[in-house]
Amino acid sequence: MADPYLPYTVTIRKITIENAAKDIKTFELVFADPAQRQQFDFMPGQFAQLSVFGAGESPIGIASSPLDANHISFTVKKYPTGVVTTALHNCQPHQTIGLRGPFGNHYPLLDMLGKDIVIVGGGFAVTTLRATIRYLLHESKRSDFGKITFFYGARTPGELVYREEISTWAARSDIEVHLTVDHPDESWTQHTGVVPAVVTKIAPASSNSIALVCGPPIMVKYSIPALKDLGFAPERIITSLEMRMKCGIGKCGRCNIGSKYVCIDGPVFSVAELERLPQEF
């Protein structure tokens, strides 16, 4: 058995600045040993530990699809107090960093087969949802799923990430995209207002449907009742949590909610599961 604390070494192939504030960047990584990409067998919704040697490790959701064969990408927001996120943002292309994982569970793709999929994202927490959409839209997968409706919002247009990619999705006929911002600028032509309100207005059908929600806590909090009002059962509303983590493998003891560890029992939980846990997150 491999040492679960020893990271792969990966090289940064490309860095993309994702937002107007320039504190969100996407890092496209390639494995030093290409065979390791095969070993790194993951599903959308899982996360990994990224490390800058000397600064430390941080758990980050995987933003690329498992069907993106050659690379793996992560979108990271820099926080002023975040030692690792700051170190990552100071990295340059061709630099080598550490990658441990994949960790945690994933979105319930088996349960999603044949169903309509409603995806609700906010801010930069849309990363693992982006991985999921890339997966669902892949030519080998798209016919396995029903209608896909994607809601995505941020405070301002400049804070919406993956803008170019999302506009290619919006141009397709097999996914419906609804973008919204709290504070539009003069060029904004799409929805205005918070994400849950747009979900309520568009009212996607809940029959034979499953909803994936990931965003800032406040957005998740109000999206859940909005979806319930549309008829989504708590078992059919799926969300993903984040916690401070160190090991990623259920030993270091800090990412628990009740007796569940977000790192191994999550990060993906149904609302039905969360309602059975202490509200401590």
Binding site: G54, A55, K246, C247, K251, G253
Partner: peptide
């Protein structure tokens, strides 16, 4: 048994 993981480094 809770633990922290941290990097200690000097001069690379």
């Amino acid at each position: 048994h809770c633990f922290d993981i941290a990097d200690e480094a000097k001069n690379n």
